[in-house]
């Protein structure tokens, strides 16, 4: 299972990558939404993990674009949110994401959570 992880914070990126790898998932990391759109084609991930706040293009817009593009709209998107606003979850789901994982996340169970959301 390949995960495309979009997270602009390097430390968090690291933790997330390690956590996911421990769960047996393959991880490709990018730093912002633009890069996600660039890499989604070549990488063909099974799931995209999007951070909400990113420079250049935030998670919100990235998701919109992904879902607008027929080539990418079917790739499941999970948001990483700081759960600052309740509406974030609703918005995420409205955009077509299949779930949210809050930050700070439990590194030991991150992979399991992703799989759970994916229904596996």
């Amino acid at each position: 299972m390949k995960v495309l992880l979009a997270e602009d914070e390097p430390d968090v990126q690291l933790i997330a990558r390690l956590a996911l790898k421990r769960a047996g998932l393959q991880v490709v990391t990018v730093g912002n939404g633009l890069e996600v759109l660039d890499r989604v084609g070549p990488e063909q991930p099974d799931v995209i993990l999007l951070d909400w706040m990113m420079p250049d293009m935030d998670g919100f817009e990235t998701c919109m674009r992904l879902k607008a593009d027929p080539a990418t709209k079917d790739i499941p998107v999970i948001f990483l949110t700081a759960k600052v606003q309740e509406s974030e979850v609703a918005k995420a789901l409205a955009l077509g994401a299949i779930g949210c994982i809050g930050k700070p996340f439990d590194a030991l169970t991150l992979g399991a959570q992703v799989l759970a959301i994916l229904g596996k």
Binding site: E9, D11, V12, L14, I15, A16, L18, A19, R22, M53, A82, V84, Q85, K103, P104, F105, D106, A107, L108
Partner: peptide, 25 residues
């Protein structure tokens, strides 16, 4: 401000927590 701050605070906490957890295991 509150949103930003809380977001900003959570980010390093995520890193700390994650690191500690992974180390522990």
């Amino acid at each position: 401000f509150v949103s930003i701050v809380s977001h900003e605070l959570r980010t390093p906490l995520t890193s700390i927590k994650g690191s500690l957890q992974l180390l522990l295991t």
